[in-house]
Simulated scan of single mutants.
Amino acid sequence: MPPRVTLPPTDADARRIKRSRVVSYVLVVLAAVVFSMRPELFGDPQGQPAHALLHVWRIVVGVLFVVAALGVQVAVGVQWRKGLRRRALGDGDDGSEPAGNRAPGDR
């Protein structure tokens, strides 16, 4: 089986990928901040009956931030792959003909 060649992203795709990385990094940093919060920040554990829920919510919110960061990367990756397939089939915005339909001398 021949190896697959992945084309470099277009300028628009490169900007989208860079923005998605920044968003993912911010979400991961927020998750780290939430995970690092100490229960003492929320007051005296004996004075609050629902203090145990603070531990659970801290973990749930941190995991949600991490899952959101992963979701951003997956969504952008899927969108980029769809664009590659569209351009490979000749349905791209540039109006070019797919490489397989050109004469060998034109490639």
Rank of each mutant, 00 (worst) to 15 (best):
M1D: 07
M1A: 10
P2R: 01
P2Q: 05
V5N: 12
V5Q: 11
T6C: 01
T6F: 11
T6E: 07
T6W: 09
T6S: 04
L7W: 00
L7N: 07
P9S: 09
T10H: 01
D11C: 09
D11P: 04
D11Y: 01
A12R: 06
A12M: 03
D13I: 00
D13G: 09
A14H: 08
R15E: 07
R15Y: 03
R16V: 09
I17W: 10
I17D: 08
R19S: 13
S20M: 00
S20R: 05
S20E: 04
V23L: 13
S24A: 15
Y25E: 14
Y25M: 06
V26Y: 00
L27T: 06
L27I: 03
L27F: 05
V28Q: 04
V28G: 02
V28F: 09
V28M: 09
V29G: 10
V29M: 12
V29Y: 07
V29A: 15
A31C: 14
S36L: 14
S36W: 08
R38V: 10
P39E: 09
P39N: 06
P39M: 13
P39T: 08
L41P: 01
L41G: 07
F42L: 12
G43H: 05
G43M: 03
P45A: 13
G47A: 15
G47I: 06
Q48D: 13
P49A: 09
H51V: 06
H51F: 12
A52Q: 09
A52E: 10
L53F: 08
L53K: 02
H55V: 08
V56N: 06
W57E: 10
R58I: 00
I59V: 11
I59Q: 06
V60L: 12
V61P: 00
V61K: 00
V61W: 03
V63L: 13
V63W: 05
L64H: 00
F65G: 05
V66T: 12
V66A: 15
A68Y: 04
A68W: 01
A69S: 14
L70E: 13
Q73C: 01
Q73G: 02
V74L: 12
V76F: 02
V76R: 10
V76S: 13
G77N: 13
V78M: 04
V78P: 00
V78E: 08
V78D: 01
Q79H: 06
Q79K: 06
Q79E: 13
R81S: 13
R81Q: 11
G83V: 06
R85D: 15
A88N: 11
A88M: 09
A88T: 13
L89C: 04
G90C: 08
D93K: 04
D93L: 03
D93I: 00
D94F: 00
D94H: 13
D94I: 11
S96K: 14
S96M: 12
S96L: 12
S96Y: 03
E97P: 04
E97T: 12
E97F: 00
P98E: 11
P98W: 04
A99T: 09
N101T: 02
R102K: 15
R102H: 06
P104Y: 07
G105V: 05
R107H: 05
